[in-house]
Amino acid sequence: MSSMIKSAATFRQGLRFVTAFALLLGGAVSSSAADSAVQVQLDTKKSSPRAVESLTEHGIVRDYRFAWTSMAQALELNTLDPLEGTFAGDAKQLLHDTVVSQQHSGLSRQYLNQNHRLEAVFYAPEGDVMELQDTAEYELRISDGGKIVHEEHVVMHFLVLMTPGADRWVIRRLQAMPQS
């Protein structure tokens, strides 16, 4: 009996390793593929009261693109791992809830051909928080148990709060704005 339990545990451990490796490999490939598909442009002309420095601008574009790539991956594969490090606070909690809810309902969302036009509208005097508005265009695909039930081209406006972390900018709030 104990050897059966042991072999089952070994099998589970092996399976976990293979799964983790496959996820890592698959994640890396799809991440780079999805990442290149996410277009982000940033306009900082209206940023006030602080101007956005060139290095900061590059960091925001890089990290925002990565955040949407991660989010798309999380909501397509219904996994929480991609959300680590790119989202914080309420934004992370909300995405966590969305993924968990999708896991229960068997639904998933795909964000394809993403194009984001970001505009910095507020950059705090001390540089510790930036507010941006994103006009995002993408193909939204909803699947139920792998079967596509809805597909549409979407134009959405998002309000984004980003704060600098140790080595990147993280999203603290990503909230859709009413359509004007």
Binding site: L94, T98, H104, R109, D144, A176
Partner: peptide
């Protein structure tokens, strides 16, 4: 019919 509700933090069928 099947009803779906998808929003921030919610995904219901």
């Amino acid at each position: 019919a099947t009803f779906y509700l998808l929003g921030p933090g919610v995904s219901r069928k």
